[in-house]
Structures are given as structure tokens and as C-alpha cells.
Design a protein around this nucleic acid. Structure first.
Lengths: 254, 254
DNA sequence: CGTAACGTTGAAAAGTTTCAACGGATGTGG
DNA sequence: CCACATCCGTTGAAACTTTTCAACGTTACG
């Protein structure tokens, strides 16, 4: 009856991220923030890009730092510059579902609600660009191209969420893990990192809460894939995908 | 190993929905389409609303009609006028996950991809307003207020998807059904329909594929809730929520 | 009125979880 | 520098929830 609650201690302390307000004269080129690098403001002209970067400040979070909690007022939108972030929802008894992992270039906190309905925590040392929501919305009124871009990002997130719903609703543990490894591999190559020995910056507990399983099942399924020669577990939390076709078949070509 | 495949025959035949192209002189007031009624074009002035309705045509679908399939090119966006729609994804072996149920006022098919990555099927007699995607996008360039509205809708959909991820990843069968009944009840009242004897326009099979369960488990869980006096099963596929506080507790106040 | 589709119920089977123990890595304090 | 505690991942065995297989009753419909 009582399902497993999150075992990892959850960091509830407030954000302690360093904040360095960016003076007009000190704004680094856009590549400092992920905004240009990942073509978020590609549709903008230089003057617009400048206005965009002027309302932003930079924030840092170390491993385990809570960036915001579900109940916090949704005052800011973030764009990840470096590092990795997990996004999750909690139940009253501590059960947790990780709804996604975010990497450089991804937006975080886009919502039209009073409060974020989810929490975000850094997986590793992470840098983010932070935009006051109100100022961003004012800017969007003048820059429809940027708004279109955000709408596109939101629709991609929605497609990813639907894939996750299929995974959680209908896939076996083995299929879930296979899907996860392929997802991570694709995300890595999309961000210019090695796709094959894929890096797992998150713990088994995080993987379990992402796949709707327990850490034991995740562990057992890893060893199962290993025994079948489908993957190799390397040190440094990396996994070599040996039989990618087998993995893809298991994942249902996700 | 082999999980249950969808048992219901899936309609793969092409859309046979009647299409009545709307001549300029014949455009009914916006209330005919859900656009004004649900304030989609509230931010628009009358002239803009008129342009908006001019690119739209009306489509009807009967119970079980496939509106589009996952592989279809994403040429149109729909807005539901009346009826109900289920949105789902299929695996190669027929396993199915219903990612959502849509009701009048909801948008359908908003994506920035080549093809819809999901299928949509009418649950009952349904009327939709159909917008050619290209024309809609052209219009959006001139009407940023409408775009902001769509972004808001997308972010709501995303929040709903995350709730569903928590449900599928971490809730028990009983909690899932409780969450589902409360969700339907809230959706009904939001659309001006009775909230308490809540109407279930979908089959047990649909509910099962939405909750990541089997039809048998859904059925057993219904009788369990009935035995505990939490709900009453009425005829006409309606359910009376007797102990709403118990239901909400089970759902985790979703 | 018969047939098919849908929903319910029972019993056995399966997959996953829970409980428990162990090993390795990491970090801290004596 | 080592003893010790802690955290994380792995593995085993039992327990449990849900699924699978099967049968039956009801409803809808030709």
C-alpha cells in the first residue's frame, strides 16, 4: 500500500546562489549566457539582444542546491548556462517524481501561474541566467519573435512530457532504462558532448524517480543489461552503449 | 514481460469528418466556434477576431473517428467546439497511453514539428474549428496577443502533463482513480457542466490507458471505492462523488 | 433474439517493491 | 594516518500490487 518515499534527503533550504548583478558596462557577450549559444535569441537583432541581456542577472548553484521549490512564487525564469538541473514534484509523504533533467540552453520556470508547480535542484555546479518574469514579459510584448521561440520550446517540452507519459504508463523496467539511456545519449550529442560513453550526472535515486521505479529495480535492470552485453558500466558514472540497436528496440525507437 | 496491448480496436481509417468551408459571408459569430466563448481571442479587437475566424473551417467527428494520427503531417490546429477528444500515443505492439482528454475550448495539435507526435480521436460527436497551421502562424506574427495566449495554454498543458507524470510514476491504482475523478469533476465545472455526478464519456479501456492500468484494475478499484462509500456508480456512465474529502486525500489534493 | 462489445469478478502468475544485508567509496575526527 | 561513520550502489529473498488468464453477466444493436 504505502509506496516508497524519496530516500534522498531533500534540500529545503533557500537558494543560496551567488548573485552578481550585471551592470550595463559589464555584460559579457551573449555566449556567456546560453542565450546566443543555443540560438534562443537568434531571431533578435543586436539591439534587441542587448535589451534582452540587460534584464538578466547571473546565478550559480552548487551540487544539491535547490534553485526553487514548488510553492515559491514564480518570479523568475532561468536559462541554464552550464551544469545540469533536475525538475521534480513531491507528494505530501515524500514520494517524488522527477519530471525532467535540464541541460545548458534549456529554459526553466516558464509558467503563467502564481507559483512554480515543481521544484528545481542543481545536479552539479550549475550557472544560470535569471530573468525577472515581469520584465521578461514586458520585453516579450515588444519582441514577438522571441515569444514565438518560447512557444516552440514549450511545445517541445510538451512532446517530451508525452513521451514520458507513455514510458511511465506502459513500458517495462527494462524498456524504461533503455529509453532513458538513449534519451541521455541524444541530449548529450545535441549539446555537443560525447554521445556514446554517456555520462550519468544523476544518482540512482534520481533515475528511479525519473523512471517511476525503485533504486533497487534500476540497479538490477542495469546489471541485467550489462549481463546481456547491451551496455558496459564504466567508472565515473558513465555507460557505454554497446548494442545500440538492441537498446533502441527496447525503447521502442524513442 | 509482454505488457497488455490496447484491446480496443484502433480506428486507423482516415479522417472522414465533414468539412464545410466557411464563406466570408457565412461566418457565424465567434460563439459558434469556441474561440470567443472560451476567451481565446479575448485579447483581440473585433477586426482581429474577424481575420482569425476567416482562416478557420469547421469539422465534425463522430464517436470513434480519428481526427489525426501520430504520423500525419501537422498541417492543422484545432479548437474543440463541442464533444470530447482523447489524445494518445501508441507503441509498435499496440500498447497505448492516453495523454489527455480534451473538452470544448481546448486546443489540439499545437506543435512545431513536422508531424503530430500523437493521435487524436473523438470520444463522442464532436465539432472542431480547424486552422491551417501556416495561415495561423502568419496571423500570429501580426497578433502577438494571441501568441501570448497560446503560450499560456501550452504552459497549462505542460503543468497538467507533469501532474500526470507524478500520477503514473508514484501513485497507487486507488490514488490514480481518485485523482482522475477529481480532475474530471474540476474540468466539468470549469466548462460549466455539473461537477458532482461527474460524467465519464470514455470507456474503461480509455481510463485504463490514461491511468497506466488495466481495465480489470480500473474496474476493481471502482468497486473498491464503491464498497467504501466514497463514490456511487450511477447509470449513464456517471459517478457520484460521495466523500469528496476522502477522494481529495487519496489524490493528494491534485 | 442472437451476437458482439463492454464491464465485473475470481484465481493464478508475473513484475516490481519492500526489507535486509553487504561492499566500496568518501569524508571526518581522534 | 587510520578508525569510523555515512552515503551510495548492489544483491538476495519475501511480500505485495497489479497483471494475466478465464469466466460470466449486462448492455447495445442489428
Amino acid at each position: 500500500m504505502q509506496r516508497q518515499a524519496a530516500r534522498a534527503g531533500v534540500s529545503w533550504f533557500a537558494v543560496e546562489a551567488q548573485e552578481r548583478s550585471v551592470k550595463a558596462g559589464l555584460i559579457r557577450p551573449c555566449s556567456e549566457c546560453a542565450v546566443r549559444e543555443y540560438s534562443v535569441c537568434a531571431p533578435l537583432d543586436p539591439a534587441e539582444q542587448r535589451r534582452f541581456t540587460q534584464i538578466m542577472s547571473q546565478v550559480e548553484a552548487t551540487d544539491g542546491t535547490t534553485i526553487f521549490s514548488e510553492t515559491d512564487p514564480a518570479d523568475h525564469v532561468f536559462n541554464i548556462t552550464s551544469g545540469a538541473v533536475k525538475v521534480y514534484k513531491l507528494m505530501a509523504d515524500g514520494r517524488r517524481a522527477i519530471t525532467g533533467f535540464l541541460f545548458p540552453g534549456d529554459f526553466l520556470g516558464l509558467t503563467h501561474r502564481e507559483s512554480y508547480a515543481f521544484s528545481a535542484e542543481a545536479l552539479s555546479a550549475t550557472k544560470l541566467c535569471r530573468f525577472p518574469r515581469e520584465k521578461l514579459e514586458n520585453l516579450l510584448e515588444e519582441m514577438p519573435a522571441l515569444e514565438r521561440r518560447l512557444l516552440g520550446l514549450a511545445s517541445n517540452e510538451l512532446a517530451a512530457a508525452q513521451d514520458q507519459i507513455l514510458l511511465l504508463g506502459r513500458k517495462t523496467a527494462k524498456e524504461r532504462l533503455a529509453s532513458f539511456l538513449i534519451l541521455l545519449s541524444n541530449a548529450a550529442s545535441r549539446h555537443g558532448r560525447p554521445a556514446n560513453p554517456v555520462d550519468l550526472p544523476m544518482s540512482r535515486s534520481d533515475i528511479a524517480d525519473y523512471l517511476g521505479l525503485t533504486i533497487e529495480t534500476v540497479s538490477r535492470t542495469f546489471t541485467q543489461l550489462k549481463r546481456e552485453g547491451i551496455v558496459q558500466l564504466l567508472d565515473g558514472n558513465r555507460v557505454r552503449l554497446v548494442k545500440i540497436d538492441r537498446l533502441e528496440a527496447l525503447a521502442g525507437v524513442a
